[in-house]
Amino acid sequence: MLCNSRYRLLRIVAKFSTDASNTEFRVLDLRKGSSENANQGRGRFQKRTEGGPQLLPPRETKMPIDQDWPSVWPGPRTFHPASVPLPVRQGYPAKDLAAPPGKYANAELMKIPNFLHLTPAAVQRHCQAIKRFCTPWPSELTNEDACDKYFPVQTTTCDYLHSSPSIRDPLARIVTLQVKLSSLPLEGRARDKFLRLVQERYNPETDMVTIVVDRCPTRKQNLHYSHFLLTVLYHESMKEESWESEKSPLDNELFEWQTSASRAAIDGLAVKQKLDPDYIQLYSEALTNLMNKGEDQETLADYKESALQLLGHSRN
């Protein structure tokens, strides 16, 4: 007991001496926390005071208005209200005419992706940083035609980005190779054979041959295979097999005036009577149109007109 009271006395003296330097009028507080700090018991577990632990004010209140924002928010990050000096609100108000929930303790703002790291200043800085890795555009490639001339083959592949730990996507292996048919030195028979080989892969409107390769498991293999295909197609088209000479005019996909029976008939007629070469030309064009475009009112009328003119029975 004696020991205990002495200890208490020592504590009082110690408190007395520490307070002496700060306050002018010292108060001897025998029962510590009896009047002022009523809620602070002497027990080991003190009840947490209202307001929680002493915290610094949010960072946003101390930010200067001309601060460097890209260094405050350098990368993608979940929204944090104390770091963003904007009066942002999100959510549906609880009552009518009430303001939407503010930015503090707002989980909705933390859910949505933000673009606070993609401010114009940050994008410009990023572009400046990667500029030294860029090479100048080739001066020869001034326009689209030059690009087509020097780089006739166009290869398209797709990269897929997923929010998953795997960077593999089976669709990334597909390679699309496009080449303009006019850029290949193919004439007449070779061109015809090439078109027969590529079938529906040729688009006559754009003059493009499109080869899609997806049979190999990796993109590199598919790329090599597409190059191989193009090479083989070209060389096969240039090759003339012995059986190709057996092709008859009926096998032609388009009517050709020069080799047609009509031309032979007109030539035979021209021996017997005089025919105007201009009218022969018109007649050949009308007949070619009729055979290649199909019979309709216009082509039939043209054909009739040119035939009558050729034979000298024109109504004009």
Binding site: G91, Y92, N106, E108, K111, H162, S164, S166, L171
Partner: peptide, 30 residues
Amino acid sequence: TYEMANGPHQIAHRKSWNSWNTANLEGGLR
């Protein structure tokens, strides 16, 4: 809380998802 006060039918209207990923989009993996 705001999350509790808005029912599941309010997802994408008044509140958003708690999981954000591309797995369930078309062509998504895993």
